[in-house]
Design a protein around this nucleic acid. Structure first.
Lengths: 369, 369
DNA sequence: TCTACTTTCGTAAACGATTACGGCAACGGT
DNA sequence: ACCGTTGCCGTAATCGTTTACGAAAGTAGA
């Protein structure tokens, strides 16, 4: 344990060359079963594990998978990382985390990608919710660098595989649920319009209203910020209208904003769900524990993370094949813009207290006045 | 951009040897200012960044800093990682994250550490709240591996630097605050007793009571689980006692458990803070937004992360010095058990609605009956 | 002019793997 | 006896750096 054991030590102990040891370590042919067995035993005895650094240098392989996330404190990000990490841990890759401070999003993102390219340590990049700054990613991708996108960006940049939740359908189901509970004046607090998901969820909201023959009242749709403060502000605006114009239900585009709605309702003395029905979006872990517990649209975080990382690993495998030695391919080998897979994963409606479905009969379709 | 530029390319362009280039890259002496300038310009032009892999191989240095966290979904972990990450990003290290699933804590921790040692990619380890399984860490440390501990483990394992919050004083201040508000029957919902922090916070609770001449009533101290469910269970037990024995205030050892207390109080029709004062511990980001907003003890997460990673970087620096070439030191060079620094960072009491201090006069010392 | 430094720089051997290529038996067929 | 295969294995170059050591040139003192 004191002196690090190298592949040369193993070779000497087994009285073979390092080539042979390397061969058995990679399950390659051209080695006698007996020899293989012997080497394997010695490797085991010595507790030898090849140095990834050296192996990477020699084989032109990189040991890291980089994950780019907006901020660890954003909802669902920890859950997503958890499932990504558990897959990565089953490989020989290590996972590094880059979180971009929201302040200088754009510049930061570019710098991080420069760093990823420069240090030449990462084999593939998983970008979560990159927001606007995805031209960096396409640049990366066009160089043949494996990249997978999660959650935002529709349409996703050319040639980059993309995995996300079915925001539109999720929002549709949430709104339809409120309609089925009898609500007719349903407000929607949107996310920031610079994010595509905000538009998608708004579309789903409209879908449900139109299906029910209700018209979309623009004065009932406000732009929030995905944060409690914005939700509270919008809710105060919506709920202080004259009672005949006041919405009886609110569909918030994020759970965080729904928390703000709860706060606003309490301020105004409105009870949830009796006086106001509320549905959120995301299903934060905390949403089961707020009062009242929040009915919300659950994002398939676990599946998203798992699918994304598996896809990325496949891409890395493929990338490895063509370039045995660097010189063998033409210098400007632009990848053919093969069509990139796009996975849209279904959400699910989690019914709790805030929508009122648990108090009244779920199938109550009568409008309340 | 197509062909990766190496140090040899730079050397050729500058008509010097790679040695000289290496020297200017590391700000070493023995190079003419004019040459240095020229090389620097060429490096800039070519956008050359040395391969960390190769450098690590040659210099015996490792490019990674590993951070071991219990679970990303634990409170304050994301915030902690954020501050750690921002420091790491200013260095040439990359940060890798290992989160251990709570199920097989012990075994998992050992496996991760084996992996860290085996891949030989990490220069130092930052272990957050390792709980019980720290014998692995001491094993690591005794081999001279840089390790820094955060948050749990008192006394920390020999020779491992340790950084944590002043749990005892934080709990003391929280409890004293409740006493100053006039409460006399103050209950305490502890964290799991297997964690040291639970005992420390309990001690702080006792300190405050004793200072005020109040005796510690064992029936008012219950063991929770740090989660909302446990807090709810304990609160229901405490609050369904006959009114003369029922606590008028509860100090919960975590914000999560305080959320459970809020739920329990609502179930029983008790208002917070009018009928029951409540103080938590941690200051989760959500605690400012729950209803009622939670008075709590804020952990100095940012400072803890920053201090810890800086300490770790220093240790790595020191570690590098003695071993220029591997052969130069005796095989079994156990580190002398130099005393390890231990930093205890102060907490701060965040006063919000749940303790009732905002309603009544803060200095009201009269006991309520 | 000779010696002793100092400044500046290059040579070449690591670091720990991977891998193209070639070599040597043994074997079977003709 | 000759040749082509096949199975097994080693030689040595390579990946992109770092660094111990020494060399060359200039400077200064004697």
């Amino acid at each position: 344990m004191a002196h690090k054991v190298t592949i040369l030590d193993i070779a000497r102990l087994a009285k073979v060359s390092t080539t042979t040891v390397s061969r058995v370590l990679h399950n390659k042919p051209d080695v006698d079963p007996a020899t293989r067995e012997r080497i394997l035993r010695i490797v085991e005895e010595q507790g030898f594990v090849p140095s990834i650094t050296a192996a990477g240098l020699a084989a032109g392989r990189n040991p890291l998978i980089s994950v780019l996330v907006p901020a660890l404190t954003w909802p669902l990000i920890p859950e997503l990382l958890l499932s990504v990490a558990s897959v990565v841990e089953s490989t020989s890759y290590e996972m590094v985390l880059y979180s971009i401070s929201s302040s200088n999003h754009e510049r930061d993102c570019g710098k991080i990608i420069d760093r990823i390219l420069a240090t030449r340590l990462t084999a593939g990049l998983l970008a979560v919710f990159p927001g606007q700054s995805s031209q960096h990613l396409t640049r990366l991708r066009r160089q043949g660098f494996p990249v997978v996108l999660i959650d935002d960006q529709s349409p996703p940049p050319e040639g980059i595989p993309w995995i996300g939740a079915d925001n539109r359908r999720g929002a549709y189901e949430a709104t339809r649920h409120l309609i089925e509970l009898g609500h007719r004046r349903i407000a929607h607090i949107q996310g920031p319009l610079k994010y595509c998901v905000s538009h998608e969820r708004y579309q789903g909201y409209c879908d449900a209203l139109q299906e029910a023959g209700l018209e979309v009242d623009p004065s009932l749709v406000l732009e929030g910020d995905f944060m409690p403060a914005g939700g509270q502000r919008c809710a105060l605006a919506l709920l202080s209208r004259p009672i005949s114009e006041r919405p009886t239900a609110i569909f918030a585009a994020s759970d965080y904003m729904a928390y703000g709605v709860i706060a606003a309702a309490e301020t105004l003395g409105l009870r949830i769900p009796q006086d106001l029905a509320l549905v959120g979006f995301d299903d934060n872990p905390a949403s089961a524990h707020v009062r009242p517990s929040l009915t919300t649209v659950r994002q398939p975080v676990h599946a998203m993370g798992e699918q994304a990382i598996k896809l990325l690993l496949e891409m890395i495998e493929q990338e490895q094949m063509p370039r045995r030695r660097r010189q063998s391919m033409p210098a400007t080998a632009e990848e053919p813009p093969r069509e990139a897979p796009r996975l849209v994963l279904p959400t699910s409606l989690v019914i709790r207290e805030s929508c009122g479905a648990l108090q009244r009969h779920p199938s109550a379709l009568l409008p309340e006045i």
